[in-house]
Design a binder for these strands. Sequence first.
DNA 1: TTGGAAAGTCAATAAGACTGACTTAAGCTG
DNA 2: CAGCTTAAGTCAGTCTTATTGACTTTCCAA
Lengths: 165, 165
Amino acid sequence: MADVTTGEKLLFLTDEQLRQGIEAMFFAYRGFTADPDRILAGMAYGRAHHRAIHFINRAPGTTVNNLLVLLGVTKQSLNRVLRTLIEDGLVESRVGMADKRERHLYLTEAGQELERKLSDAQRARMRAAYRAAGPQAVAGFRQVLEAMMDTEMRRKYHALKENGA
Amino acid sequence: MADVTTGEKLLFLTDEQLRQGIEAMFFAYRGFTADPDRILAGMAYGRAHHRAIHFINRAPGTTVNNLLVLLGVTKQSLNRVLRTLIEDGLVESRVGMADKRERHLYLTEAGQELERKLSDAQRARMRAAYRAAGPQAVAGFRQVLEAMMDTEMRRKYHALKENGA
DNA sequence: TTGGAAAGTCAATAAGACTGACTTAAGCTG
DNA sequence: CAGCTTAAGTCAGTCTTATTGACTTTCCAA
């Protein structure tokens, strides 16, 4: 019976429990993106723009290459998004001081305003979920999510936390 | 100071904490979909096919309309995916007994085999994350995810659980 | 000074989604 | 029975986000 691990652990590692976790992730992620998606639907922007804006706000001065890796997209993909954001005056691209090949990205006033609008909506939902579930649940939530990341992404996640802390 | 809620709750409801939660969701979801995506990349299928297969397996005999709402896509979108799956012999579509307008969807042997392959990979990651985080964390994880869903989706999530339990 | 890295661009392609319009078949209801 | 509604399926066109591949410009560094 207790061939793999303790009885307590066996209880929640059944296929059924794991499937429920998978479905919870699926449905929750839909909720997670729903509010920003709604806001962006009106403008000429999509989820890709939101992600770029989020991470530029989070790590101001980040380079294009940095952002590329963080978002997990190709240069060409990001460039299209970035170009419209720069043209529309939401993002500023400054030539690097030390290395002039690099471009450092910053949100303009207008960019920060949109960022606030988007993240306000997303944080409101997050806050409600956190409140409903309680502090202990939140700690567990964070632990499981972190364990679910690829090693490389976990590294980047922590790097961002240092930044914002 | 304690104007909104208790001190204990204030601690983890700072903007910074919420932002970290948002980023954790983003990075974890990437990990969550990475394994099935890799498997499907070789074949002519994508994430949309995976989702259809998952839910048909989960609720065998479900109707097209049911699946539509569950996945949150349009009829035309689902139909393209479903058509290829039926053509390739992974999904079977049976005319309804009670209502002949309805089509009930089932996985064939081949469909079940692919489902197993995909969900094995996804469950392996889930299992590893659950093990690493521990039982208490898992309970919290589930609570927060559930609180994050839209009401309608939470209803559907519970309906599926009844089904599979 | 030359090789390689960072950024940017052009072109072609694909998956996955959308709207809108329309057909077919079948159920329901007055 | 006639007529409205519902479930499914299809055709056509569009959009966003992503891809690969090829190429240029700029510039750092050995």
